[in-house]
C-alpha cells in the first residue's frame, strides 16, 4: 500500500505541502472570501429588516388613518343626528305656535260672529216688539175705539216673555 510506505520522502513532502496549501486556503477564506459572503448575507438581512420595518410603519399609519376616519365618521354622524333633532324640535315648536295662533284667531272670529248674531237678533227683537205693540195698539183701537198705550206695551212684553224670548 503506497500510503503506508513511510520511507518514501514524497509522503512527508505531501504533509508539508498540505500544511502550506491548507494554510493558504484558511488564510484566503478567513480574510477575503468568507467576510464577503457574510457581508452579502448581512446586507440582505438588513434589507429585509428595513423593508419589514417600513411595512410595519406603513401599517401603523394606515391603522391610525383608519381610526381617524372612523372617529370623524362617528363625529359627523352625531352632529348630523343632533342637527336633525334640533331642526325637528324647532319645526315642531313653530308648527305648534302657528296652530295656536290660528286657533286663537278662529276663536276670535267665532266670538265676533256670535256678537254680531246676538246684536242682529237683539235688533230684530226690538223691531218685533215695536211691530207687535203697534199692531196690538191698532187692533185694540179698532176694536175699542181708543187705545191706551201703556197696558198694550205691558201685555206685548208679557207675551214675548212667555215665548221665552228676552
Amino acid at each position: 500500500m503506497p500510503q503506508l510506505d513511510f520511507d518514501n520522502p514524497l509522503l512527508i513532502a505531501q504533509v508539508v505541502w498540505l500544511l502550506i496549501i491548507f494554510g493558504l486556503l484558511y488564510y484566503v477564506l478567513s480574510t477575503y472570501a468568507l467576510p464577503r459572503v457574510e457581508s452579502v448575507l448581512e446586507e440582505r438581512r438588513a434589507r429585509i429588516a428595513a423593508d419589514l420595518g417600513a411595512a410595519q410603519a406603513a401599517k401603523a399609519e394606515a391603522d391610525a388613518a383608519m381610526a381617524a376616519h372612523r372617529e370623524a365618521t362617528a363625529k359627523a354622524r352625531a352632529e348630523a343626528q343632533s342637527a336633525i333633532a334640533s331642526a325637528m324640535q324647532q319645526a315642531q315648536a313653530e308648527a305648534a305656535a302657528r296652530s295656536e295662533e290660528l286657533n286663537r284667531r278662529l276663536a276670535q272670529q267665532i266670538q265676533e260672529a256670535e256678537q254680531r248674531i246676538a246684536a242682529a237678533r237683539d235688533a230684530a227683537m226690538g223691531a218685533l216688539r215695536q211691530v207687535s205693540t203697534e199692531t196690538a195698539e191698532s187692533l185694540v183701537a179698532k176694536l175699542a175705539g181708543r187705545a191706551d198705550r201703556t197696558p198694550v206695551t205691558a201685555a206685548v212684553d208679557r207675551a214675548l216673555a212667555a215665548r221665552g224670548q228676552a
Binding site: 520522502p9 514524497l10 513532502a13 505531501q14 505541502w17 496549501i21 491548507f22 486556503l25 484566503v28 477564506l29
Partner: peptide, 18 residues
C-alpha cells in the same frame, strides 16, 4: 521540492473552493 500530483490536486481544490 516533493511537489506531487497529490499536492497539485490540493492546490486545484483550494483554487476551486476560493
Amino acid at each position: 521540492v516533493g511537489f506531487t500530483q497529490s499536492s497539485a490536486h490540493m492546490l486545484l481544490a483550494v483554487g476551486l473552493i476560493v
